[in-house]
Design a protein around this nucleic acid. Structure first.
Lengths: 155, 155
DNA sequence: AGTAGATTGTCGATATGTCAACAATGATTT
DNA sequence: AAATCATTGTTGACATATCGACAATCTACT
C-alpha cells in the first residue's frame, strides 16, 4: 500500500525523466547539427533569424532564445566570423545592431530544415495528435509553476 | 482542414515546448539552489552520493549524471574545496577514486532535501497520478528515439 | 535644454559542458 | 611474462551560459 500523496513518487519521477529527456534531446541535436558544424544554439539563432527578414536586435534574440544578452554577443560573433550572419547598424537606435542572415546563412538554413523537421517528427514516433496537444498543455503548466517557484524564491 | 501528418504541427510544438520547459526547470532550480550556494549539477552530485554510502568512482558519477568524465573532475574539485565531498583512494583500482560525501556534505543534503521534494511536487500542480505515469512512459520513448537518431547520424 | 533613469551591447570572471590527448593502471591475449 | 588493448582521471582548448560592471545611447521628466 502506497501512501496516497508520497512526496517522491511518480510525479517526482516525471520531473527527473523530463530533465533527462531534454538532456538527451539536446545531446542528440548536438550530434545532429555537427554535420553542418553548428551547435544547437547556433542553429536556433539561424532558425529564428530566418523568420525575421528585417533582422533582430541582440536583446530580442536573447529573449526569444531565453538567454542572457551577454551570451548573444559571442554566439553572433562566431556566426558572423563564418559569414552566416551580419550585424547592421540600426538607424533608429544607435545602441542596437540589426542581426540578420547573410545569403550564405539563408542557404544553409534552407538546406538543414527538411532534415531537421524529419528528425523532429521521428522523435515522437506514433504519438497521437491528441496526446501531443495534451502534452504541450501539461508542459506549459509545468513551466509556469517552475517560473512561479523561482520568482517566489528569489524575492 | 489540417493535413493529417503535416511535418511541423503539434508534435513539433511538443518538442520545442519540452526543451523550453526543461530549460525553465533548470533555470528555476539554479535560482532555487542558489540559497545554498550550489549549482543544479552540484546538487545532483551530492544527491546521488547520498544514495551511495560506499562512494562512487568519477566515471560512474559521470554516467549517472549523463556527463563526460572530464566534467566530473572540476565538479568534484569545487565540491572538495568546500569540503562537501572527498576523494578516497580505491583499494581495488588504483586508477579510480572513491568520491563520497563528507559529514558536512551529508548534513547539507539532508537540510535541502525536504525543500527540494516540496518544490518538485509543486511543479506538477494537480497532475493526476495516471497522467504522470503516462508522461514518464512517453518521455522515455522520446529519449530512446532521440538516442537512436543520434547514433544513426554519428555512425 | 538638462538631468535622471532605463536599455543595449561588450567585457571579465566564473561555472558548466564537450572533445582529444596523455599518463597511469587494469584486463586480456598470446 | 610480455605485449596489447581498454579504462580512469586530468589537462588544455574551446563553446555555452550566467552575472555584474561599464560606456554609449535612448527616454522621460523637470
Amino acid at each position: 500500500m502506497t501512501s496516497p500523496s508520497a512526496t517522491p513518487g511518480p510525479r517526482y519521477q516525471a520531473l527527473l525523466q523530463l530533465l533527462r529527456t531534454a538532456d538527451t534531446l539536446w545531446n542528440a541535436s548536438r550530434v545532429f547539427f555537427a554535420r553542418w558544424n553548428l551547435s544547437p544554439s547556433q542553429f536556433n539563432v539561424l532558425n529564428l533569424l530566418y523568420d525575421q527578414p528585417k533582422g533582430c536586435s541582440q536583446i530580442k534574440l536573447g529573449r526569444l532564445l531565453v538567454m542572457h544578452r551577454s551570451n548573444v554577443t559571442g554566439l553572433v560573433d562566431r556566426l558572423e566570423a563564418r559569414a552566416l550572419v551580419c550585424r547592421r547598424d540600426n538607424s533608429t537606435d544607435r545602441r542596437a545592431f540589426n542581426v540578420m542572415l547573410t545569403p550564405a546563412g539563408k542557404k544553409l538554413i534552407r538546406q538543414i530544415q527538411p532534415h531537421y523537421h524529419k528528425a523532429a517528427a521521428e522523435v515522437w514516433g506514433g504519438l497521437p495528435l491528441k496526446r501531443a496537444n495534451q502534452l504541450v498543455a501539461e508542459l506549459i503548466a509545468v513551466s509556469a509553476n517552475a517560473e512561479c517557484i523561482a520568482e517566489r524564491v528569489s524575492t
